[in-house]
């Protein structure tokens, strides 16, 4: 049963467009650059995608509730910076990572409160939080950059477990956990219900505040993990290190077929979305395209996908209405 619905989603359902564009993209990439299909490039793509994927994992839950979190990028940077500073100061690795996680969770918690209790529009509250977090990251780094972290920490980013890079394994574990959480638990169901219709959820006795807080906490947590892994991978920390990821994180979720209206989509889509975006960047790098084009490409991709979502919905609604009219006429 479970496999069936997953397969159905991939082949015919929500993720159809995402899967199709992934294949088309891979096809084009192969034509454009023969080195694209090499094993080493494959591993590179996976590793690059894994950080993006970790960062956008929690955001998927938030977008499913019909809200957004624009602070993921800078809160990840903040967490990475705190972790690096503490490592340099000589704290044990576990403690450093714990502190970063705590900061990520705090950011998520505040976001959740602002959106859930104060009912501020989520994009305003989290955009403000984005500013605050990047400002704090700047303070933590004192405007500078840190190089050279302990090797037992950097393994998290550059190490391998068998043939697979550690970040990829981490991302895979997170994906599985998130899938179980969102598809197989009462909490996950409530996340979807709030996204479908927050008012109806309230009128059904769903505790929407707790669910929303949960989603934002997840988002803060995965943001922190992403920040830590990224710091380990770079073997350095810089307050602007996630700048390039800012829009990509949102784009990965949206390109993966999760609707900004909430309720539709899921983690599986985000996996595809993250891989698509990474391939786009990868192929641009291989082709030697100026990296300044990336923002433009991501912007266009996100606009196109959101438009497609709304357009498909409108076409669907129109078709349903016409069907209805015909059946009424016949009756």
């Amino acid at each position: 049963m479970k496999k069936n619905t997953m397969l159905h989603d991939l082949v015919k359902g929500r993720y159809f467009f995402s899967v199709m564009s992934l294949f088309v993209l891979i096809g084009i990439s192969c034509l454009m650059s023969p080195s694209f299909l090499s094993l080493s490039n494959f591993i590179t793509i996976l590793r690059q995608a894994s950080i993006l994927l970790i960062l956008s994992m929690g955001l998927t839950a938030v977008v499913l509730t019909g809200n957004i979190d624009l602070s993921v990028g800078s809160s990840a940077a903040l967490c990475g910076c705190v972790c690096a500073q503490m490592l340099v100061a000589g704290f044990p690795v576990i403690l450093c990572m714990g502190a970063s996680l705590l900061i990520g969770l705090t950011v998520g918690f505040i976001n959740g409160l602002l959106v859930g209790i104060l009912k501020l529009p989520s994009f305003i509250a989290t955009y403000g939080m984005n500013m605050v977090a990047s400002g704090l990251a700047m303070i933590v780094m004192n405007g500078g950059v840190i190089y050279g972290l302990p090797t037992n920490f950097t393994t998290l980013g550059v190490g391998y477990l068998g043939p697979l890079p550690v970040p990829v394994i981490l991302a895979a574990i997170l994906v599985v956990c998130m899938m179980i959480l969102l598809q197989k638990t009462v909490f996950g169901r409530n996340v979807y219900m709030i996204g479908y219709n927050a008012n109806a959820a309230d009128y059904s006795g769903v505790n929407s505040l707790r669910t929303l807080l949960g989603a934002y906490l997840l988002c803060g947590m995965t943001g922190a993990i992403g920040g830590i892994v990224m710091t380990a991978r770079l073997n350095a920390a810089d307050f602007g290190m996630t700048e390039a990821y800012g829009l990509q994180i949102v784009a990965a979720v949206v390109v993966g077929g999760t609707s900004l209206l909430g309720g539709e989509g899921g983690v599986l889509g985000t996996v595809i979305g993250a891989i698509i975006l990474t391939i786009i960047v990868n192929i641009m790098n291989i082709m030697g395209v100026n990296s300044n084009w990336q923002g433009m490409v991501h912007g266009i991709v996100i606009l196109f996908v959101v438009w497609l979502d709304v357009f498909a919905r409108r076409v669907g609604a129109g078709r349903a209405l016409r069907k209805q009219r015909e059946s009424v006429k016949r009756a």
């Binding site: 979807y192 219709n197 109806a200």
Partner: peptide, 15 residues
């Protein structure tokens, strides 16, 4: 307020 129209019947029944 009563239903999540875009969601399946089964989800609404157990909401």
């Amino acid at each position: 307020l009563g239903l999540a129209l875009r969601a399946p019947i089964s989800w609404n029944v157990v909401a």
